[in-house]
């Protein structure tokens, strides 16, 4: 397992480097940058002081330098005007649109995004696991049919639509405004127990909205895998020998059918993160999603780049954990057509 962990860790280093390069390339793909758009606007207004500041920023952040040099300075392996200062050194750069350091603009948003996405994954597991097991062990019962129907509805409903419907009903039926991830008085305030409590009371709505489709998919996969296992000969033999049903279920079939459950952590994170961005716009959540969309639109490259790198890191770490768990849970070789793979 140590060899596996280290080899897997070794893959993460070039993966993160490639991701950072691709992220930076995508941000730089559109012609011009945030400052060149600003310069054109300021020139038309004849604002000389602002023009000088823009030129100063262009020089300070090396926007006049070649692409590769800008990239190396951004990740912190090449000196810029203020020495070696990039992502590695904890300097996320300057947000041109907000005229503030990225760290000041981002504030709590990355932490809130992490909390939201982590809770969504947790919700998906906690809800999908018992339902999936129930649906498989009570195949074709009323409960199974009902849960299957609910699962299909969950899969077929787009997250943003579900958010809109929920907002409408909460407002019309109960007079509640369910947008936001905390009460407005806690926005931009330091973390306290009251603020944390406010986040928790608001978190359940986006968690349900974002997590429903993933939960439905997970239930379907767990049900199908468990049904496959339950029909295998070793289960029939154990039943015939009088092994208690619950013990039999927990000892082998359930363990085997958990594989997709674990491997899905890695697959779920990108979809949860991209899904949460759209839902965050609809529900006015103060997470990274809406700010990332704005930053991409306005070519605020350091702000967008920081968000994308954070989300990519979250995904890479999620995949790493999922792979480790999977390797520990099921270290079997796969056989295809009789040949070892």
């Amino acid at each position: 397992m140590l060899t596996y962990t280290l080899r897997r860790l070794l893959i993460m280093i070039p993966t993160l480097l490639v991701i950072s390069f691709v992220t930076f390339s995508i941000i730089k793909l559109p012609p011009g940058d945030f400052l060149s758009n600003q310069i054109a606007e300021l020139r038309s207004q004849g604002d000389k002081a602002a023009l000088e500041k823009v030129e100063f920023l262009r020089k300070q952040y090396g926007l006049d330098k070649p692409f590769v040099e800008q990239y190396a300075a951004w990740i912190g392996i090449w000196p810029s005007e203020q020495g070696i200062s990039g992502l590695l050194q904890g300097d996320w750069g300057w947000s041109f649109e907000h005229d503030l350091p990225v760290s000041a603009v981002v504030g709590d948003r990355m932490l809130l995004s992490f909390m939201l996405n982590f809770t969504v994954v947790l919700f998906t597991w906690v809800v999908a696991f018992p339902i999936g097991v129930y649906a498989a062990t009570h195949q074709y019962s009323w409960g199974d049919h009902g849960l299957t129907l609910l699962g299909y509805v969950g899969l077929a409903t787009p997250n943003f639509l579900f958010a809109l419907v929920l907002m409408y009903f909460a407002n019309v039926q109960f007079g509640l405004a369910i947008g936001g991830i905390m009460d407005p008085e806690y926005l931009d305030k330091a973390w306290s127990l009251a603020k944390f409590g406010s986040v928790l009371t608001h978190l359940w709505i986006p968690v349900i909205v974002i997590g429903t489709s993933g939960t439905a998919g997970m239930i379907r996969r767990l049900r199908a895998n468990l049904l496959d296992e339950l029909q295998k000969q070793y289960v029939v033999t154990a039943r015939a020998k009088g092994m208690p049903a619950f013990r039999l279920l927990v000892k082998y079939p359930l363990r085997m059918s958990l594989n997709p459950f674990i491997s899905d952590i890695g697959n779920m994170l990108p979809s949860v993160i991209s899904g949460s961005a759209v839902v965050a716009v609809v529900l006015s959540l103060q997470t990274s999603g809406p700010m990332l969309l704005d930053a991409l639109r306005s070519q605020d490259q350091y702000l967008a780049g920081s968000f994308l790198m954070f989300l990519a890191m979250l995904t890479v770490i999620g995949m790493f954990i999922s792979d480790l768990l999977l390797a520990a849970l099921d270290p079997r070789i796969r056989l295809t057509g009789g040949a070892a793979k």
């Binding site: 280290l6 070794l10 280093i13 912190g76 050194q89």
Partner: peptide
Amino acid sequence: AGSLGGFVICAGLLGFARPAAAVAWALGAA
């Protein structure tokens, strides 16, 4: 090659890039 390469990259970044504390801990552990 992998273990040496991994060590050189992590130790190199740790020594020359003067990373932030959290990054330094992660690189040191790796």
